[in-house]
Design a protein around this nucleic acid. Sequence first.
DNA 1: CAAGAACGAAAAATCGATTTATCGATTAGA
DNA 2: TCTAATCGATAAATCGATTTTTCGTTCTTG
Lengths: 358, 358
Amino acid sequence: MAQQEARQRRPSIHDVASHAGVSAATVSKVLAGVTTVKPENAQRVLNAVERLAYRVDPLASDMRRAKRRIIGAIMPEFESEFFGQMVTELEGLAEQRGYTLVAASSRESEAREKEILARMHDWRVAGVVLAPVRNEHGPAAAFMKANGMTGVLIDRVLSDDAFDTVSADSAAASAEVARMLVGKGHKHILIIGLAEGAATVRARLEGFRTQALALDPSIRIDVITSEVSVEPLRSSLRDYFGRGERPTAVYSLLLKGTLVALSEFRRRGWHCPNDISLVGFDDAEWMQVTWPAIAAVVQPVRQIASEAMNLLFRRVEGAVGPPSARLEPCQVLERESVGSPGNGPHSGGGDRQQPPLS
Amino acid sequence: MAQQEARQRRPSIHDVASHAGVSAATVSKVLAGVTTVKPENAQRVLNAVERLAYRVDPLASDMRRAKRRIIGAIMPEFESEFFGQMVTELEGLAEQRGYTLVAASSRESEAREKEILARMHDWRVAGVVLAPVRNEHGPAAAFMKANGMTGVLIDRVLSDDAFDTVSADSAAASAEVARMLVGKGHKHILIIGLAEGAATVRARLEGFRTQALALDPSIRIDVITSEVSVEPLRSSLRDYFGRGERPTAVYSLLLKGTLVALSEFRRRGWHCPNDISLVGFDDAEWMQVTWPAIAAVVQPVRQIASEAMNLLFRRVEGAVGPPSARLEPCQVLERESVGSPGNGPHSGGGDRQQPPLS
DNA sequence: CAAGAACGAAAAATCGATTTATCGATTAGA
DNA sequence: TCTAATCGATAAATCGATTTTTCGTTCTTG
């Protein structure tokens, strides 16, 4: 009976101590690598650890520290490749340093974002990687500030007066997209986006506009945005085309917009790039297998994750000084969805007529 | 100075106790909803909690329980829509019950899977939702068994002698795909898949084969699988078509296979459904905006997640009895990528010729 | 050779809660 | 009126580690 219980209960540090014939404090020191332990005793501890298959309980171990070896990660969603990769990267990086990553999805809600943050504060996490729903001025960042939490803001941020920030260099990437499209002769371009309140989306917009106008002041740039959800954007786009607007290229500032644009093209029977060109911010695996392959801006997920974790741990270890605002360079992939305007007839003839062998 | 420290340090249960003029035990009882506390004292505790903005430290709170209010979730990856949604659902479900979900990615490695599990065991999680890399017979499930952990296996599993399992009804869905394809007159069908060792992939294969042969014994079914990674599958497929094989439809048993098939079609200039039909297991958002839209089997993510959590918490609360093996029904979406064989010419004419307005 | 420094390890305090044992006061019963 | 039962609350033990304090020994050193 007692045997069974003993088999169920995991060995504690005291079990190791008594097996090794030393005190719990000594065991703790050996495991922590403190050198003031006699080699002989250290060996006995190690043997006991081995024999009992003892492992430190991270929960109990964290009890006595102010900063626990837990890192919180808050993403707007888990469903997209971008944030999925981001969590994977962050998890690996935290693990490397002996920390546990607790990831949570704010589901695109600022209210939920703040609740999650409060819960992470309850856990007394050592630090937080926050990808805010909107931008760095939301209630979540305010909460972190008010409670003296250490953290890094990523993705939908530009800079902050309290936290380090890391994001893709949206403006530079958008300028490159502008060079690409203007270079191919486009003179009427539509930009679609969501949540213009997000600083990064605005940066993407301005980065494009500035570069495009610099290259060709006569260029016409239309902008359609929707503040909240995808559906208004969809109907705005439908209306826009419905009243006869015919831009020769569309630049979507985010993935959902790319999907909306594609489905609208479908509805109208338009093909890329003959009828219209398309470039989207954010790449996805499927974009290179569809026909045509969709041109996209690739965000440097690994660099963002790694830089964010570096900055975070620097702060966790007590670094002071003004917050830094990092921008990581993107890569623009020019694929088949981009062509020159008027290259193909606006009606008739499928994309089939181009040699597809790649 | 002391003031500042006090402002930094979060209030503990003792701070609340002294503010309310009662003992810590009483505070604990009030917060736990024990009724043997005088209403007057309960009110004073509640007031103190309010004034100090006190919140229970979940870490300390969990110290004294054998099963902590933490649920572990292990997924093969976070990058796909399926597992992204799964984690989101599981997180919400755990949260509803006052538990914290700690998710980890095994990155399609059984070794890593076991390591993660060992770490979760260190945390003494109350339960684990494991989506194994291969199947229910891997080292991870064995570890759980050996250490008496409670858990539920999902997705790439059929049934187990120790744990409850929940997965999509792959066989039934595949049979429905078979009915669809055979019903449209296909007599030569190629099935592509990965990791045939995974029980579910085999179930998908057999579910399809059985139904297809029952409907038309003369049907020809070719199968191409690759044990490990995607690349061998890609080259096998290339060889297969290269030596002149011309099935009229392809059924991919998993998402990665669908992508491989599409890119191979691209390379050869084939269009769906005129040149070849395509159906894939696993749906994705992009599949309805591409041209053609890709027919797919939709897995019931929410039902799987919810059923898994129900079963898990039943076990956490001590339920005994033989493990159950649940299969949740899928939905088959017939989209444009599926047509009748010979419907369009095998060479010439794009999919453009079909009215796309949907 | 005695006082002090250095060393190694054990004892005890600590982290922040929960739970059990204990205790005093009030009420009930004989 | 005295003992027993009940009620409410406190003190103390507990969870499993870490860290500080204390305490013998041994080694220096004047």
